[in-house]
Computed example of a mutant assay.
Amino acid sequence: MLIGWLLRKVSALSVFSSRLAGLAVLLFPAPAIYSFNSGWPFVDALIVYGLGALIAAAVFTFMKTREQRA
């Protein structure tokens, strides 16, 4: 998520696009980096990070619907 926030600050990405970029980083490169450094199996890391990405996407969706109501 930090990478998505940084992308938004240094480029002209919208909030939604920067959140998607952060989720993509959380879902794809992060498990590979973690499993390489820790020795954890890649599939286990992918499942854990995938669940984190799903939770983050749900939070973003909830925040988006809440902002639209206000």
Rank of each mutant, 00 (worst) to 15 (best):
W40F: 13
Y34Q: 01
W40V: 15
F62L: 11
L51Y: 12
S17I: 04
L6H: 15
A45P: 14
L27F: 10
R19W: 01
L26P: 02
I33G: 09
P29K: 09
A70F: 13
A30D: 03
V25R: 05
M1N: 12
Y49P: 10
A70M: 13
F16N: 06
E67Q: 10
A12M: 02
L6K: 13
M63V: 11
F42H: 06
L51P: 12
Y49D: 13
G39E: 00
A57S: 07
F36E: 02
A58N: 10
R69D: 10
T65F: 09
L51F: 13
Y49E: 12
V48P: 02
A45T: 15
S17D: 13
S18W: 03
T65K: 10
L54M: 14
I3S: 12
L26R: 04
A53I: 14
I3T: 13
E67Y: 02
T61M: 06
G22M: 03
F62C: 05
F28Y: 15
V48F: 12
I33T: 14
A12W: 08
A57V: 12
A21G: 12
W40N: 11
M63C: 11
S14M: 01
A53E: 11
E67D: 14
Y34R: 00
A32R: 07
R19A: 00
A32G: 06
P29W: 05
F60K: 01
L2E: 07
L26A: 07
F42N: 00
S18H: 09
S38I: 10
L26W: 03
K9V: 00
F36Q: 08
L7Q: 00
P29A: 09
S35C: 12
V59P: 00
Y34T: 06
V25F: 13
T61F: 02
A32P: 03
L20N: 05
I33R: 04
L7V: 05
A30W: 09
A57R: 07
K9G: 02
S14V: 02
G4D: 06
A45D: 15
I3K: 06
R19M: 06
L20K: 03
V59A: 06
G50D: 13
A57Y: 04
F60H: 02
S14A: 01
L20H: 03
K9D: 02
K64I: 01
P29E: 04
S35T: 14
L26D: 07
Y34A: 05
L26Y: 06
F16L: 04
A30G: 05
V10A: 04
V25S: 06
L13F: 14
A56M: 11
V10W: 08
F60D: 08
L6T: 15
V15H: 12
V43F: 05
Y49S: 15
M63I: 14
R8D: 03
P29Q: 11
T61S: 08
F16R: 09
A21P: 08
A32V: 15
T65R: 07
D44L: 00
V15R: 11
Q68C: 00
L54T: 10
L7W: 08
I33A: 10
P31N: 07
A21Y: 09
S17K: 03
A70H: 14
A21W: 13
I3D: 08
G50P: 08
N37P: 00
G52S: 12
D44H: 01
L51V: 12
L13S: 12
L2D: 06
S17A: 09
I47R: 09
F36P: 02
G50N: 06
L13W: 08
